[in-house]
């Protein structure tokens, strides 16, 4: 899909500094009323990098990832996505959303549309692609997530794992340069987690820039260039997956890891 596919970024634990920046957040604050959900977030993600974000519930992971495509407006600091700075203007917001695909915990497939229609809608309305072409794109990505034969079904007829794979295909149909995942496997039964992670790993292998909120340690170890630990709206620690899980620095991360590992 992209020229980055051959560069196999998974091998190197830290991305080369020369790669262009995909997402840059500097000093980002976010308030919900009087509650501060993000406190001075600084985060740089380079093209082709895979970032895993984890942290306790309520630490601001979703808020952070939702600020990147402006589902939530931030209150302070700057967020730049592929050179486009989010300044609140509808035009730039739209441009950034075309750069980013997003996958949600709850799948959020449109229940009244078939799988195929779910995937065709955004290319048609967001990019003005003709119907036949949109269908070709949709079928191609549905094949890629190995769900092509379900194209004419409705979301409610699919299992959770299948629905999440459709959600990934639906996002890919817009051919985004960056993929945002917000706990994509947290609503799934254990037997379905693997099929979704596999699709995500395939995507990573093709060189996609990915920011994933997830607690799947195996996935983080296999895929992530960097792991980011958040707590109480702050980024507390950033490290390679190996150091992150094997040799954590801060007490807060140690505590958190002890909890998720029991």
């Amino acid at each position: 899909m992209t020229s980055l596919a051959t560069e196999a970024p998974m091998a190197s634990p830290v991305a080369e500094p020369l790669r262009p920046i995909a997402v840059e957040m500097t000093g980002v604050d976010k308030w919900y009323g009087t509650f501060q959900a993000l406190k001075g977030i600084d985060l740089t993600v380079r093209k082709g990098e895979k970032i895993v974000i984890c942290g306790p519930s309520g630490s601001g992971k979703s808020t952070l990832i939702r600020c990147i495509n402006r589902l939530e407006p931030h209150d302070k600091g700057t967020i730049t996505v592929n050179g486009i700075e989010l300044d609140g203007s509808p035009g730039r917001t739209q441009d950034v959303r075309l750069e980013c695909g997003m996958v949600f915990q709850q799948f959020n497939l449109f229940p009244h549309l078939t799988i195929l229609e779910n995937c065709m809608l955004a290319p048609r309305l967001g990019r003005g692609v003709a119907k036949e072409q949109a269908e070709a794109i949709a079928r191609r990505y549905l094949e890629r997530v190995r769900i092509g034969e379900q194209a004419m079904k409705y979301p409610s007829q699919l299992s959770g794992g299948q629905q999440q794979r459709v959600a990934i295909a639906r996002a890919l149909c817009m051919e985004p340069r960056i993929m945002l995942f917000d706990e994509p496997t947290s609503a799934l039964d254990p037997e379905m987690i693997k099929e979704v992670l596999q699709v995500m790993e395939d995507l990573a292998a093709e060189g996609m820039t990915m920011i994933c909120v997830t607690h799947e340690m195996g996935f983080a170890r296999r895929v992530a260039n960097r792991c980011v630990f958040m707590d109480k709206g702050e980024i507390v620690e950033e490290a390679t997956a190996e150091d992150f899980f094997g040799n954590p620095d801060s007490d807060r991360l140690k505590q958190f890891l002890a909890q998720i590992l029991h």
Binding site: Q94, R97, M102, F104, N108, L121, A122, A167, A171, M174
Partner: peptide, 11 residues
């Protein structure tokens, strides 16, 4: 969530 998914898709 559906409205957000739609917005996130650039619709």
């Amino acid at each position: 969530g559906l409205t957000e998914a739609s917005a996130a898709l650039g619709i």
